[in-house]
Design a protein around this nucleic acid. Sequence first.
DNA 1: TTCCTCATGTAATTCGTTACATGATTGC
DNA 2: GCAATCATGTAACGAATTACATGAGGAA
Lengths: 182, 182
Amino acid sequence: MSVKNKTRYAILGVLNSSPCTGYDIKKYCDRIIAHFWNENYGHIYPVLKALQEEGLIERVEEETNDRKKKYAITGKGREEFLSWLKEPAHYQPARSEFLLKLSFSKDLHKDEIRSMILKYKEDYVKKLDGYGKMEEYMKQKEGALETQQGFFLYAPLRYGIRSAESAIAWCDEMLNEIDLLK
Amino acid sequence: MSVKNKTRYAILGVLNSSPCTGYDIKKYCDRIIAHFWNENYGHIYPVLKALQEEGLIERVEEETNDRKKKYAITGKGREEFLSWLKEPAHYQPARSEFLLKLSFSKDLHKDEIRSMILKYKEDYVKKLDGYGKMEEYMKQKEGALETQQGFFLYAPLRYGIRSAESAIAWCDEMLNEIDLLK
DNA sequence: TTCCTCATGTAATTCGTTACATGATTGC
DNA sequence: GCAATCATGTAACGAATTACATGAGGAA
């Protein structure tokens, strides 16, 4: 098994919708689910090979381009994927470098802390802006919410939007608190 | 340098407040900053040794118990710590196994998705409850917000509270959407 | 006497990222 | 002709978790 766990299921999940190449999978990660998941080639290709050896995926013909290696999920693969899907998601230990820094910042000057938070806020404002555009796009193009298909991309997006809004609100709250401090 | 980066600064940050043993550092992580940071012995002890060799921390006497190894930050250590503190925090690529599963759940039954989200919500309700208790505790014990000291623990806690509230609100929104679906 | 917390460490494994290496095709 | 994107892969490194190993001291 060697290379397993997360990447494994991310790949099976993508292939469960339609046959893809490793490159396609990377593209899917970067364009569609980037705000809550990421993969890199260094992991995708070895796992693809391992999954094939285990019989969870198989090569399919690709006429247009012989360099491409297109894979499809097998029945066995779908089984394992579904059983993973039904398990509760593992809790992942939180690690926020930003909050770590903030919690250690007693020796910094007020202004430094203020600009630290401001920078953090700006990052989330940008993110929120990106999410907003995606939301617009989904709403007009796919009719998103009405269809099942749409829901499963729209829901994580809404999560991102709410998280970003909440981070921004926190920044504003803290910027106020700092002014009141000492 | 070998073992470096994050753990390194987490340790320096704890020692920047007061001299500690490796065990104390672990305790601090588990009790005070657990909601946004975590460390384990397997990393703490080797890094402690490495930091001492680099002259960023040093052994201090511990009268009560000779088995204890208490370390303090040095001038050089404080310098490096502060320069890290002033750098902007690195963006960390998001990975939410829960959202990954949800985005792949088109083949699951409505009820399964509903209970998936309900479980997720319960986890956050519990977390929020824990944060609430911590907040109460901090407010009465330390006078939290008024003092500088308090602020730097209170601010990350507020972040946790807002995140949890936002996650719970998202769950409710999605539970509604699911009922409207199809 | 048994369990819990204190206390320190090593080894093995798994995981994730980055850098490296190569080359075809497409559009400007 | 050049840059961008398509396309596949390996190697090395860096980091994080888990398991293993040991033992003291105090409380119930």
